[in-house]
Design a protein around this nucleic acid. Structure first.
Length: 410
RNA sequence: GGGAGGGUACCGAAGCGGCCAAACGGGCGUGACUGUAAAUCACGUGGCCCUGCCUUCAGAGGUUCGAAUCCUCUCCCUCCCA
């Protein structure tokens, strides 16, 4: 099977390591790639996914994109759905026991997850496995055998466990087993490389130990930093609302990416696009924060990312849409139309707060009044200052509330 | 089982008889500016056809001319001891 990308081994190493925060052992990557090339045996690259949240965002996409990169280099992606471990709950970084998921929920999440992951991964050289396949038939004997492989002291070395233990918060025995179970996946699929977040360091290393015990060559561990969300501070997560979903509409994606803080543009370029390390470095060098080059860099970022998921044509359209709406402040096309509700009119006069609440442009009349006072309500671009306007004046024109809510009145 | 401390607006957190629709911070919204939904600055942020009125400070009662603030009971949370 020929690789779809031809790069020298050192270029490959650079591509991969520029995205990874850490590799253990670091020097081994080049050697493995070399050997694979020479012996024409593709590497088996494992990525375990936790089916606790179904919607993928750019943060999840980081290891998935590297997995794709391996595929492009001719290697095999082994995507493992943690349908068994998901019912145990990963204790990594957690300050309390995670709720175990039900079987149905896990199955459902896994389905949407894989569907979205396929938007990133190549269909060729892809294995999707569920770890219940082997963990489910481990039996108590097999489980005991696994449990024998490590010690309580080693597990307690981990910061998260140590803190919880010291703080007297409960640690379930089953959580102790999690690292072993997920590490056993590496044995089961004979992984050469495993990808994961930096918080997975311990778990990935346990994989190496177990593989050694089972007479396999220990896997190479590649760990990726967490991508901060749009607020620039906290990690990207759905619950914090600071995420860019990989299935989001192009316009939405473009707009969200343009609001990434300047300081993070480089990191986003490196982790969320296909640009090579030297190109990113060049952009970072020229884009002094606050200057026009920083704006250009972010535009590049938005264009690149949207193109990855939607193609260049849609990305270009998203960019035009963005410029129209946010740079030129044009009234967008396809503004929804609505009739003026009779309840909002009295003797030929329209009472704007009522109109706005009825059309869902403001949550309350008080809020609507505030918006009008602050000059945030416009009719065909002209700010309104009165609470009441003649019905005849309003008809057939576009009412704009704030910067992005529009309704054409009939 | 015993003891201590709490529950205030979207969130965090002041207030501890009247000047309280309730400080302050975050978030959010609008405006100015610009390079964008960035940064900065300003203003706003319970409801109501609003110079005023109505409903809020876990819930229910009570004291008082007047309660987020005092009393009683109920529910919920946190911590300490067993």
């Amino acid at each position: 099977m020929p690789p779809t990308v031809t790069l020298s081994a050192s270029e490959q190493v650079e591509m991969i390591l520029s995205r990874a925060e850490r590799a253990v052992p670091e020097e081994e990557l080049a050697e493995r790639l070399d050997r694979s090339l020479r012996d024409e045996i593709p590497l088996r690259v494992k990525l375990g996914i936790d089916p606790s949240s179904p919607d993928l965002h750019l943060g999840h996409a980081v290891p998935l994109r590297v997995l794709r990169l391996f595929q492009q280099l001719g290697h095999i992606a082994v995507l493992i759905i943690g349908d068994f471990t998901g019912m145990v709950g990963d204790p990594s970084g957690a300050s309390k026991t995670r709720p175990a998921l039900t079987r149905e929920k896990v199955r459902e999440n896994a389905r949407t997850y894989v569907r979205q992951a396929r938007r990133i991964l190549l269909a060729d050289r892809l294995e999707v496995r569920r770890n219940s396949e082997w963990l489910g038939r481990l039996g108590s004997g097999g489980l005991l055998d696994l449990a024998r492989r490590t010690t309580v002291a080693r597990i307690l070395e981990r910061d998260d466990f140590a803190k919880r233990f010291a703080g007297g918060s409960p640690i379930s025995v089953v959580e102790f087993l999690y690292p072993l179970l997920q590490a056993y996946d590496s044995v089961a699929v004979r992984a050469d490389v495993e990808l994961g977040g930096t918080d997975q360091l311990f778990n990935l290393l346990v994989g190496r130990d177990l593989q050694r015990d089972w007479g396999q060559e220990p896997q190479l561990c590649l760990m990726f930093g967490l991508l901060e969300g749009l607020d620039g501070v906290q990690k990207m997560s759905k619950s914090l609302g600071n995420y860019v979903g990989i299935a989001e509409a192009p316009e939405e994606m473009f707009g969200k990416l343009m609001s990434v803080p300047d300081s993070l543009t480089g990191k986003y370029l490196r982790l969320a696009t296909d640009l090579g390390p030297s190109e990113v470095a060049e952009i970072e060098r020229t884009a002094t924060p606050g200057g026009p080059a920083a704006a250009a860099a972010k535009r590049r970022l938005a264009r690149e990312v949207v193109s990855l998921y939607w193609g260049t044509a849609k990305a270009a359209r998203a960019e035009r849409h963005f410029d129209a709406a946010h740079v030129l402040h044009e009234v967008p096309r396809g503004v929804p139309e609505a009739p003026v509700p009779p309840e909002a009119t009295d003797a030929g006069r329209v009472f704007l707060p009522r109109l706005m609440t009825d059309l869902g442009l403001a949550p309350s009349g008080a809020e609507a009044r505030r918006l009008i006072e602050q000059g945030g309500v416009r009719l065909d671009g002209v700010a309104l200052t009165e609470l009441r306007v003649d019905l005849a004046v309003v008809k057939g024109r576009v009412l704009q509330v704030g910067r992005r809510r529009f309704v054409k009145l009939r």
